[in-house]
Design a protein around this nucleic acid. Structure first.
Lengths: 236, 236
DNA sequence: CACAGTCTGATTGCCTGACAAGAATATCAA
DNA sequence: TTGATATTCTTGTCAGGCAATCAGACTGTG
């Protein structure tokens, strides 16, 4: 049992709340975060807020341009791909390491997460899909024996969470995702490190492809919208 | 030509200076950084300092324990090994990617860095060794086409810089290091991605081993010193 | 002499208030 | 419509202050 007393600092809570707000898409890429407004919303002072912002800046969840303040970065396709590449590398390694040392309890937890994911898919509950996926990976990452991989991946995935939710909602993606995760599960449960790595890399590759397609589709729609509104305004 | 105007914020300068101070070993693992003292040294106010500290905390260069303030973290051997493992993975990937797209200019720069390294070794100039090593890797990382790898590695290497300088000073390590880097150079210059990855991974593995040996030796020496001083004090 | 409890100075976490400088926006002349 | 100017917003930074907490000295007790 964990008896640790958790001292919650105002700054720490602010970081958590803001991180949650950013990754869950409450703030959109490009949005400015006006300090005074954030202070009011969070109920904290400006110095504390700014400390929180610096933490988030270091996590690359926001960018702070001098004299222009904090805003949500706009992820380029190139950068997103680079992130997926590194994710593939790290998750592949984690899966391979985990394959050699998976405990029964961890495998059980993964099985439950998979079942939960399929249930969420049936109910079209996007939030639950992301949560069960997280639970699935949590076992791999905490069980792979390398804390640094876990650390790196948690910041990387945070940066693309909003992409993930978008790509997961694409038709057919959830079922494919389920199959890919089951492939990972199968490999680690029989202790096949090479296959586990391969499956994990494949899963990220497919997610990357889905996100890329979604990204490009959104871009086309945006351009379309811009040209239409332009015509409209020049007419009006 | 880069015409960008660099607006130096007080906070940004503080982060740079502190980072430099930490990685160069001015502060030792376990040291406390008293805020008032740091403010005085840096000539800045406490809020600005605290912002800087939060940035460094997110980079894991310091840890901030509530009500106890910022310290330099004490790296465990296990954690150091985990960092080296991830480094091997990322640098291997970077080298493999770079092998396919190395420019002549980049290869020239690497050759110069290698020559500089050997010169530094001859003069037993540890600082120059680290700097030329950095220059060598800079080409690989900036030329590999994946900015995220560069980003991740820069924070990872910062966390173990003090280990690197220690391990580099071990007898014979510099010459081996030079040979290993030349192997990387050779592979990338002929465009052999697999060999480049292999060589890069091997280089990190050897560095890890050197660091581990140094770490254990230091630990023994420390224990020795402790027991001696204990005897001393009980005698006096 | 060892040890538990108490006290005090040092330090942190956080807040208010303030002000100059830079950016964004509105206003107005050409 | 364009260009210049003024005004308003925001940010970067500082000073000062207060309550909560911690570490180490101090003290009384067995």
């Amino acid at each position: 049992m964990d008896l640790k007393v958790l001292t919650q600092t105002v700054q720490g809570q602010a970081v958590r709340n803001l991180r949650e707000a950013i990754t869950s898409g409450i703030f959109q890429p490009g949005d400015r975060l006006v300090e005074a407004e954030m202070c009011a919303r969070l109920g904290i002072s400006r110095p504390s807020l700014r400390e929180a912002l610096r933490s988030l800046e270091a996590e690359r969840l926001i960018v702070m341009v001098p004299n222009k303040g904090p805003h949500i970065p706009i992820l380029s396709l190139e950068e997103a791909k680079a992130i997926y590449e590194v994710r593939a590398l790290l998750e592949g390694e984690a899966a391979a390491l985990f394959a050699g040392k998976a405990t029964v309890a961890a495998l059980e937890a993964m099985k439950r997460a998979l079942a939960g994911f399929d249930a969420a898919t049936k109910q079209e509950d996007l939030q639950a899909q992301l949560e069960t996926t997280r639970q699935f990976y949590e076992q791999i990452l905490s069980g792979c024996g390398n804390r640094i991989i876990e650390e790196m991946l948690s910041t990387l995935t945070a940066r693309i969470t909003f992409l993930r939710s978008k790509s997961m909602s694409q038709p057919g993606r959830a079922h494919k995702s389920s199959r890919e995760m089951r492939a990972i599960f199968k490999a680690v449960s029989v202790g096949d490190a090479a296959a586990a790595r391969e499956a994990a890399v494949e899963h990220v590759r497919m997610a990357c492809r889905a996100a890329t397609e979604k990204f490009l589709a959104d871009q086309v729609r945006k351009k379309d919208w811009l040209s239409r509104s332009k015509t409209k305004s020049s007419n009006g």
